[in-house]
Amino acid sequence: MSGRSHEPLFWSLFVVGSVLAAVIVPALILVTSVFGPFGWRWFADAFTHDGIRDLLQHSIVRLAIGAVIALIAVHACHRLRHLAIDLHAPLPAGLIGVLAYGSAAAVAVLTAIFLALV
């Protein structure tokens, strides 16, 4: 057999991301992409160019958003990795892992850069 696994590293981040995704993603979708187009004034006004800059004004807010997005990305990519494996994807397991966690890392890094540039 193969010795103790390093999966706990990814799994623990996955679980934290799962909790965040469960409590935040529904509200995130509603606030950014549903209430506005449905014509709810306050939410439409919050996403004018000035509005979103106001939302992102405090560095604590930007820090929190960056951390939350990174963890949710790990959650989603970890789950997609296991879905691919459970569907017997005809790729080497190592490659699936690199693709999955590489994507998550890319989302995390890009989000950090974009937040710094606002």
């Binding site: 995704a21 993603v25 995130l28 979708i29 950014t32 992409s33 160019h49 979103i52 800059r53 992102l56 958003i65 997005i69 949710i72 990305a73 959650h75 989603a76 990519c77 997609l80 994507s103 989302v107 890009l110 989000t111 974009f114 937040l115 540039l117 606002v118």
Partner: peptide, 15 residues
Amino acid sequence: ILAEVVLFMLLLHKA
């Protein structure tokens, strides 16, 4: 969830 996260990330980019 990943798709929505990426769309939101791009919104931050455009902001």
